[in-house]
Each structure stands twice: as structure tokens, then as C-alpha cells.
Design a protein around this nucleic acid. Structure first.
Lengths: 182, 182
DNA sequence: TATTTTAATTGATCACCGTCTAATTTCGCA
DNA sequence: TGCGAAATTAGACGGTGATCAATTAAAATA
């Protein structure tokens, strides 16, 4: 998946490379969709670990570090990252047991960091605000990587994303380092 | 495309339904990717027309109308809308001549409306801010429609998107109707 | 160890796909 | 009417996901 991306990924090629027959893959994963779900859930976990690793390094602005980490993980693992959003479960198929929780770990990191900068009396709003800020950053990251921003002449998508996040956190009374106005 | 979605769309089925052979489609559009580009550009234009139509109806909050229009077009034409972002041009293929401009019409609508609420001395910032706000709304819309928000327990993605947009516009000194806090 | 039971693995088969080419049909115009 | 150009076609090629009866390997039992 990391090499060829979602569109050119195939179970046959996976089987060939690991030295098994296609049928074995299907016996193990059940279906093509479940194989993709397994791969993408693994990517989510790598992503969360990547962010935690960045946060573990000393930094004055952990929120900016999160946004940058979101962008750079996507950029450094573009085929894996886009596969997450390229894949859609069939309408009749639910996310297999346990996978949803493993994926949620990524959001948990953001909720924790958002809560840390909110005034104590507003910390219960952190989960909703965090989800919304992830969506904001996701939108900017998507347009940055799929060329939409470039097509429109935008050259600094990351700066825009950070600015939007800071504005929303400020509107909720968060205490943060001053913006780096370059 | 509107019926079966990006993953199950095929040129063969198109040819069958319009009563031509596959080769004819290939001769007309050149490749599968160019066929998809043509379809998706058409969707962009329908989307822009959809937004203009909504703005033509009397409204006290044109910004909110834009965000709602973004969401509702996506929801009402989910397979068409997702096809736009599911498709990625091969690295060696540029967007065919003229298609980029046709797609940009959608952003132009947003730039115009953002400029209208900004203080006159800041109107030159409208293009960049508008692009960023589109990305913000796009992120929320994506998570709303692909089930990410539902999985995390979020029940009002549209409200969140509008709130984020209002915060960012307010931070730029925009004059807008008061938020509906109902 | 010899035998039986269970688990793992295979690959041929099916109905599709995008792409391409040679051959054919249709059309516009002299 | 005839001809050259344009449009259209069928079919081949190498792929795809999915399936499942048959086979092989491993484990459990006697």
C-alpha cells in the first residue's frame, strides 16, 4: 500500500510478495475490505505514535506541533494516508470489532492536548472542540496534498491551518504561546 | 457515477448504457482518467450553481448559507461529491486545459462572499481566507459524510463548521449577523 | 510409531476491468 | 455516385476481486 497506493493495491500482489496464494489472504482476512481496514487501522496507530513522538520532544507550542505532525505524517506517508480516506466500507458492513477503538487513539491525543490549553472550567468542551479542529486541519491537509491549494495559488497551507486552529482555541479562551508571526 | 459511485464506476457500463462500444468512449475522452475529470468538473459546476441558487434566496446570513450549501450538496449528491476527491490524476498527467478554471468558479463564489463581510481595508485578504475557510468546511463535511464524526460521537458537524468559520471571520474583523445560539 | 483428525494452503475458475488495435461502418462533400 | 475522412466496433490482452473443492501440512490420538 505504501508503495503503490490505494488505487493500484491488490490482494494478488500482496500474496505474491509474501509468498502465499491469494486464497490464503482471503481465508485470513475474510474479504478485500477487511484487509484494507486492517492496513488502515495500522496506519492510524502509526500516525498516533508519530504524533506522540513529536510531542515528546521539547516544544513551546504543542498545538502547532500537532498540526505540523498531522501534515508531515500525511506528506511522508502519502499513499498510506490517502488510503485511509479512499476506502469506504460497503453500506452493509460495519467496522469490525475493536478496530474503531484502535483508530480513536489518534483523536484521544488531540483531545488531551486541547484540554490542556483550555481554561479548567471549559475542559469538558475539549472532546467536541478537538474533533472539530482535527476536521479543520484535515481539510487543509487534504487540499495541500491533493493539489487543490496549489491550483488556487495558495503556498502556505500549514500556516493557514495553524492560524485557523489558534483562532478557534483563542475564541474558547485557551491560553497559548504567542503566534510566530515570522 | 451518481448511481454507483467512484469505486464501482466503469467506462464499460457507461458505454453499455449510452449504446456505444467502449472504444468510442476511449476515442472521445482519451483515457479513463480524462473521463473522470470531465464528470468531476461538471459536478463542480453544478455545485457552484447550487450555491448561487441558495444565495439568491433571501437570507440574513449568507456565510451560513454557504456552509449549509456545501454540506447539503455533498449529502444530496454523495457519490458524485466523493468522486471528486476519490480521483487523483496520475503523477505524470496535468489537469487538461480549461478544466482548472471551470472548477475554480466554486471558490470564486466563496471569495466574493468573504470579501463582502470583511472590512474594506482588509478585502485583499479575502482570497487566502476564503480558501482556508473552504478547507475548514471541507474537513467537517468529509468527516460528517464518511462517518468519522459519528464514530467519535459527534452529532452536529454542520454547527461545528459554522462556528469555526464565524470564529475565523470574526478574528479578521468581519461584520456578520449574530450567531444563532438556539 | 501409526493413524486419524484438524488446520492451513492452493490455484483453477468466474465475471469483471482499462487499454489498445485492426477492421469495419458511416458520413460529408465533390 | 464515389471517395476520403471520421466515427465506431469487436475482440484480444493482461489485469482485478472473489470463490471453493481439492490438496497438503500439522497436531492429536491410539
Amino acid at each position: 500500500m505504501a508503495e503503490v497506493g490505494f488505487a493500484r493495491f491488490s490482494a494478488r500482489e500482496v500474496a505474491k510478495r509474501i509468498g502465499y496464494a491469494v486464497g490464503t489472504l482471503y481465508n485470513v482476512f475474510g474479504s478485500y475490505d477487511r484487509l484494507i481496514v486492517a492496513i488502515n487501522t495500522r496506519t492510524f496507530e502509526q500516525w498516533a505514535a508519530y504524533l506522540e513522538d513529536r510531542l515528546a520532544q521539547p516544544s513551546t507550542d504543542r498545538i502547532a506541533a500537532l498540526v505540523e505532525g498531522y501534515f508531515s505524517f500525511a506528506a511522508e506517508h502519502m499513499p498510506l494516508w490517502t488510503a485511509i480516506y479512499d476506502h469506504r466500507l460497503p453500506p452493509d458492513m460495519a467496522m469490525p470489532e475493536g478496530f474503531a477503538a484502535r483508530r480513536g487513539a489518534l483523536t484521544d491525543v488531540v483531545v488531551r492536548e486541547v484540554a490542556a490549553v483550555l481554561p479548567v472550567q471549559l475542559r469538558d468542551r475539549a472532546p467536541r472542540l478537538a474533533r472539530s479542529l482535527v476536521a479543520t486541519v484535515h481539510g487543509h491537509c487534504t487540499f495541500a496534498l491533493n493539489g487543490s491549494f496549489a491550483l488556487l495559488g495558495e503556498t502556505a497551507p500549514l500556516d493557514m491551518a495553524i492560524a485557523r486552529v489558534r483562532e478557534s482555541l483563542a475564541a474558547s479562551g485557551a491560553s497559548m504561546p504567542l503566534a510566530d508571526t515570522g
